[in-house]
Nucleic acid binder design. Structure first.
Lengths: 332, 332
DNA sequence: CTGAAAGCGCTTACAG
DNA sequence: CTGAAAGCGCTTACAG
C-alpha cells in the first residue's frame, strides 16, 4: 500500500540499510548516494513508518497526558487547556506526540496508568494534579516509568515536577491586603485533597502570622472548584461576619464569591482570584488575580520530561514558574 | 526488560502462536491450555506490546485529534474541552487512544496532517472546525485517510460529520424573540470563515424573512470569538441604533455584548448566547443560551469514525445532535 | 562507503 | 488443537 524503505532502496539502487542511514544522515554515506536516495524519497513521497521505527528503537516519541476525571467540572477550568497548549507546543518542537487519556474517577486513575505503561505506548507521562499520598505518583515510581508532575509532590527530591511557588504567591496577596489595612480576610479554596489548595492556604496563614493576626477557622472554606460551591461558601461566610476581604484559590471561585457579595450589596469588599482567566478582567468590578503562567508550566513540564527521557544531563529535578499579581478594581 | 509473549510461552510450555491465540480467545484452543496460558500471563504480569501489535495489524487503535491553532483564544472556548471529553470517553470504551495535535496557524494545519497521516500513527482523524473550502478536508479526502469532522462540510454526502442543526437552532431563537415582539434584532457572530457562524447567520436571516422583517446589514457583525471583539462590536452597534434584542453565536460573545449593554444602561435589552457554558447562568442578568451538547457531538464523532474504521456497516454518514434553548433572565 | 542478516514483539496462513 | 515459519517496516552490529 504505502511506500516503504524497500521501495526507496530499489528505486535508488541501494540497500534498505543505506536508505535508513541516509534518513539519519549518517556521516559514513557518500554525498552522491545521499543525493540519489533523497531524490528517490522525494519522488516516491516517502515517509518513515513511525510504528516500525518505534518497535526497533523501543521509543515511541510520544508523551502520555493524564487529565483528572474525578470532578466533572475540573476540566472546564481553563488551566488545563492552557497547560496542554504549553505541553503540546514544546513537545511538537521536539518531535513528540501527545497521547491524552482521562480517568473516570480516582480509582480508575491507576488502572489507566497501568494500561498506558504496560502497552508501551508512551516514553513518559505527565500528571496534571497532585494529591497527598498520590497513588499515581506511587505507581509510576514503582514501575520506574519516566514521568513529570505539575504541582509539588511529597517527595520533592526524587520526582520531576514543575510548580509555582504557591505559598509565596498567596502570601504576597494577603500581605498586600493587610498592608492596605484589611484584617478580617476570608479564604475560599478548592478541595483540600489537592496540594495546590494546601499551599495557597499555607501562604494565607503565613501572611496572617507575620502580621500578627490570629487565624480564624470560621473564615476558611475548602470546597469544590466550582462557581456554585464558592457562592454557597461565601454566603455562609457572610452569615458569620462581614470580612474586609476575600481571597480565593481560583477565578471560578472568585466569580462565585463575587456573585454572593453583590447579592448582599457588598460588591466593594476586596476580592482576589487566582489563575488570571480571561473573564476575570471583564467582571464588574474587574477581579484582581494571580497569573500562574499555566502555559509555561506546561512547557517546562514537557521540557523536564523530555530531557529526562533523552538522558540529557539535567541539573535540576524541578522548575518553579514565576507568578504575577494582576491588580484590578476588586482590590482598589 | 519487560515480559513478552515468548516469556509467557515458555512458562506455559506452549508456542508463542498459542499464547497469541489465547489472547484473542481463539475458539480452537482447548480450555485446559487457555487456563494454563492465562495463569502464566497473570504470574508474569504480562501485557501485550501494543506497538508490536500495531505493526503487524496495521492498525494502531488510536485516533488523531486536530485542534485549531489559528486563533489564540479559540481553544479557551469550553466547547473544545467538552467535545474532547466526549471523544475521549467513547474512544476509551472502544479501546482507542487519542493522539492530540494542534496547528500553529492555518497553513500549518495541512503540514501537521501530512505528518500524522504519513507516520501511520493513527487509524483516523477528527477535525474540530470546518471552514469553506476546507484544506484539511480536501487533503484527507485526497489521501483517502479515514476522518470525521465536527461541523457540516461542503460535501455532506461523501464526508463523515456530526453537527447541530445550527440554522434551525438560531431560527428558533430569533423566531421566539420576534414572537415576543422584538423586531430590531442585532446579530454578533464569530469569524465569517467558520461554517458555524455562517449557519447561525442563515437561521437568523431565515427567521426575519419568515416573519417579514427586512434584514439590516448594519445590525450584523462577524468578528473574533472573543469577549473583547464582541464588546467592541456591540458598542458599534449601539451607536447605530438601540436594538430590541441581540443574538450571538457564542456565550463568550454574549458576555462581551452584555458588558457593553450594561455600560450603556441597556442591561434590559434581550440577549442570547450560544453553547450554554457554565458561566452564562451566573451572569447578571443570567444569559439565555442554546445548549449544543458539545460532549455528545464529540461522542458521536468518535462513534462514526470508529465504525468507519472498523468497517461496520454504517447506515449514515452523519449525525445531527439536538440542541436546546435554555431560557434565562436575559430574555424574560 | 555499503550490504546481508538479525532482531524488535506481535499475528496468522499453512501444515499436521 | 497446536507449532514452525514468515512477515509487518524499520535499525544497527558486523563484515568487507
Amino acid at each position: 500500500m504505502s511506500v516503504t524503505i524497500k521501495d526507496v532502496a530499489s528505486r535508488a539502487n541501494v540497500s534498505p540499510s543505506t536508505v535508513s542511514r541516509v534518513i539519519s544522515d549518517n556521516s559514513r554515506i557518500s554525498d552522491a548516494t545521499k543525493k540519489r536516495v533523497r531524490a528517490a524519497m522525494a519522488e516516491l513521497n516517502y515517509q518513515p513508518n513511525l510504528i516500525a521505527r518505534s518497535l526497533t528503537n523501543k521509543s515511541t516519541k510520544t508523551l502520555g497526558l493524564l487529565l483528572p476525571g474525578s470532578q466533572e467540572d475540573l476540566l472546564l477550568n481553563p488551566f488545563f487547556v492552557q497547560a496542554m497548549r504549553g505541553i503540546s507546543s514544546y513537545a511538537k518542537g521536539k518531535g513528540y506526540y501527545i497521547l491524552f487519556t482521562h480517568a473516570d474517577n480516582d480509582e480508575d486513575e491507576v488502572e489507566v496508568l497501568t494500561n498506558l505503561v504496560g502497552s508501551q505506548w508512551v516514553d513518559g507521562i505527565i500528571l496534571t494534579t497532585v494529591k497527598d499520598n498520590d497513588k499515581s505518583i506511587a505507581f509510576l515510581k514503582e514501575k520506574k516509568h519516566p514521568f513529570v508532575v505539575i504541582g509539588k509532590p511529597d517527595d520533592e527530591e526524587h520526582t520531576y515536577w514543575v510548580d509555582n511557588d504557591n505559598v509565596k504567591a498567596m502570601f504576597q496577596v494577603v500581605d498586600l491586603l493587610i498592608k492596605k489595612g484589611k484584617k478580617n480576610i476570608g479564604f475560599i479554596g478548592g478541595a483540600h485533597e489537592f496540594k495546590v489548595t494546601k499551599h495557597r492556604l499555607l501562604g494565607y496563614l503565613k501572611a496572617l502570622k507575620v502580621n500578627n493576626i490570629k487565624a480564624d477557622l470560621n473564615l476558611i472554606y475548602e470546597k469544590d472548584y466550582t462557581e456554585n460551591a464558592a457562592y454557597e461558601a461565601t454566603k455562609e461566610l457572610l452569615e458569620y461576619c462581614v470580612p474586609d476581604a476575600i481571597v480565593t484559590t481560583d477565578d471560578l471561585i472568585a466569580f462565585g464569591a463575587q456573585r454572593a457579595l453583590i447579592e448582599n450589596n457588598m460588591g466593594n469588599i476586596s476580592l482576589v482570584g487566582f489563575n488570571n482567566t480571561v473573564l476575570s478582567m471583564y467582571k464588574i468590578p474587574s477581579i484582581s488575580s494571580v497569573d500562574i503562567n499555566a502555559e509555561k508550566l506546561g512547557m517546562f513540564a514537557a521540557k523536564l520530561l523530555i530531557n529526562h527521557i533523552e538522558k540529557q544531563k539535567v541539573d535540576t529535578t524541578n522548575y518553579i514558574i514565576d507568578t504575577k499579581f494582576i491588580e484590578r478594581d476588586s482590590t482598589k
